[in-house]
């Protein structure tokens, strides 16, 4: 059986749901879950339930792998050789996309970034091309298949395996090209937009920055993250880190609720692969209604508070 490594992302000492989806993409392979930072024994039950034959705590002799993406890329390259992996998969989160690109460059191997489906055995992957307008199927010709998976694109399914724990310290050092001077914390209590299972977005109709509070209250009831359209960001109602769409973030939640968003093609480029899209808009002719699943014609300031109350 071919061996596939999965780089596991954790939050507050637990496995992120998005990583379980990545493991599901490799089912049928012998899965080696690679963990950095968190204690593997605390993750054992969850990772074993979703198919990890082995859970390996990865470290490097040359320093803290969680503090340097270049060092972690070197350590992952060493892990690929150590465990004789024929594929290594990760999450296409902000950190995951950056890390895998560094790894691919360091190993000079092809990489398919932000896949929505993949076949590890055949080394093929499906991903967005042309800003969400088309899917491309790509075939990779390499000994090791590297890919990142779009968060929430693949639904996690349990497939119990042994989940033996082990440690591997790679004998690598940091190339020392980057010095991280400072980490500026955003609102850490908020759910990350690209990884959120549910997103509620406010467009131009939100009218003022303080009105996002209404969406945050609603989001809190659903375990959702709050997004913004480009029009709302450009009007100064929301920071760029909240922008969904071209020049912002690409998201793929199971539920996307667009409030007062007109539905420009550039917005769809960032959320088209969401499972269910709901639009609430005062204008019954808004383009978004032609391209979503459910629509409510109404004033967001009337509809959203009722939604929050009833959830």
């Amino acid at each position: 059986m071919a061996r596939t490594g999965i780089l596991i992302e954790t939050e507050n000492g637990t496995v992120k749901d998005t990583s379980l989806g990545v493991m599901t993409a490799a089912q049928g392979q012998e899965i080696i879950a690679l963990v950095t930072g968190a204690d593997p024994s605390a993750l054992k039950d969850k990772l074993a339930e979703y198919g990890a034959a082995k859970i390996v705590k990865l470290s490097a002799s040359g320093g803290d792998v969680t503090a340097s993406p270049d060092l972690l890329a070197e350590a992952l390259a060493a892990a690929v050789r150590e465990f004789d992996l024929t594929a290594l998969l990760g999450t296409a989160s902000a950190a995951g996309k950056d890390l895998f690109a560094r790894l691919a460059a360091a190993m000079d191997l092809p990489l398919v970034s932000d896949c929505v489906a993949l076949d590890v055995e055949a080394k093929t992957a499906k991903k967005s091309h042309f800003s969400g307008k088309t899917f491309a199927t790509l075939k990779v010709d390499a000994n090791v298949f590297l890919a990142t998976v779009r968060p929430n694109a693949i639904e996690a399914k349990p497939a119990p395996a042994a989940g033996e724990t082990a440690e591997f310290s790679a004998d690598v050092t940091d190339p020392g090209k980057l010095v991280i001077k400072e980490v500026k914390k955003g609102d850490s209590d908020k759910i990350d937009l690209t990884e959120a299972p549910i997103i509620i977005t406010g467009g131009r109709a939100i009218k003022a920055a303080e009105n996002y509070k209404m969406l945050e209250d609603c989001a809190a009831k659903m375990g959702a993250a709050v997004g913004a359209s480009r029009a709302a960001v450009d009007a100064g109602y929301a920071p760029h880190s909240m922008q969904v769409g071209q020049t912002g973030k690409t998201v793929s939640p199971r539920l996307y609720i667009a409030c007062g968003v007109s539905g420009a093609v550039q917005h769809f480029a960032g959320m088209k692969t969401s499972k269910v899209i709901v639009a609430i808009n005062e204008d019954k002719d808004a383009p978004i209604f032609a391209k979503c699943d459910y629509g409510i014609v109404g004033d967001i300031f009337e509809v959203v508070p009722v939604l929050t109350e009833k959830l």
Binding site: A94, A95, V179, I180, P239
Partner: peptide, 11 residues
């Protein structure tokens, strides 16, 4: 770097 967090990197 995700979640609204920012890094300042020198090179």
């Amino acid at each position: 770097v995700g979640g609204g967090d920012k890094q300042v990197i020198e090179m």
